[in-house]
């Protein structure tokens, strides 16, 4: 089992958010579940959480709220 870095998970999550943009709204759990499938046991819940935090903090993604909370691309300023 290879080690997976937070950055790699965050990049994969970002790609997924980009791909789903305008088609499907993703919740945090959708991202962590997809990453667990993709990276296997190496990507556990805490790592998934950390990756989301990274995505939000470097402003590649942002939270949106329409009835529920979703993770979306940060709109162009």
């Amino acid at each position: 089992m290879s080690d997976v870095t937070v950055e790699a998970v965050a990049d994969a999550m970002y790609a997924m958010v980009k791909e789903c943009h305008g088609k499907r709204q993703l919740k945090a759990i959708d991202l962590t579940k997809a990453m667990a499938e993709r990276f296997g046991d190496a990507c556990d819940k805490p790592l998934g959480k950390e990756a989301i935090r990274l995505l939000i903090e470097d402003e590649r993604c942002t939270y949106s709220y329409i009835g529920g909370s979703y993770i979306v691309l940060t709109p162009e300023k």
Partner: peptide
């Protein structure tokens, strides 16, 4: 543009 069809149907 603003709404997700399945989520809204499920609501």
């Amino acid at each position: 543009k603003t709404c997700e069809i399945p989520t809204t149907v499920a609501s």
